[in-house]
Amino acid sequence: MTTTSIRVVETPLVLYALRRADDALVLGHRLSEWCGHAPALEEDMALANIGLDLLGQARSLYSYAAEMEAAGHTEDDFAFHRDAPQYRNLLLAELPNGDFARTILRQFFYAAFADLYWRAMMASPDPTLAAIAAKSEKETAYHLRHSAEWVIRLGDGTEESHRRAADAVAYLWPYTGEMFEADAAERALVDAGTVLDPAGFRDAWDKTVSDILAEATLEKPAAGWMQQGGRSGRHSEHLGHLLAVMQSVPRAIPGATW
């Protein structure tokens, strides 16, 4: 059987772009799973908006990766024709939606980082990355606002919502550390001044998270052991299922245009 998977030459910059693109696509895909099923119509609208922002970010970053790779690949090749081990997203992004509390806390933890990160990346000497950062920062600032307001309400709402929010914090916490990791390939770009070291945002992230969790009357877990592997393609069991669904149509008729 022939495979319809592509092979990507992952130079540091291509790898960097794919990692961020995969974060945005996988998380956006997860949010799109809510469409038609959210707790209220107003939240259905909100989650779809965030999902659409993330899809847009993914598309810009894939296009940039394609340009940097210069192998004729398109955004759709990256999205639909790589297997799970070739995906470079954070484990946090691929975790299943769970209940609304888990979805909101996942969004909050990610946005609290991405907002800081993109805002700083607006100063990147790479004009494409700077432009993507400028657009993403505005979007992410709103994602952070939206999710933080909900974290506060769920944490300080009813007994049940508090319990669910606390469970979500506990479940997700071990996946937050990966956001701050940079491997050798990424460090090369950091040293060249093209991109920023994610580790540099840990303190600011910590402060945002501490403040909001405190307001939500939720306990912030101690640092603890952190899961990682997504950035190098070692994923949770969940990503394979996500991709099996997402890629099913284009993989069924190789070479077709949709």
Partner: peptide, 16 residues
């Protein structure tokens, strides 16, 4: 629209 408080109402207004 429907919202539990003013902050959520403003967010929902933006999203809707």
């Amino acid at each position: 629209l429907h919202a539990a408080d003013a902050t959520l109402a403003l967010q929902a207004a933006r999203d809707v």
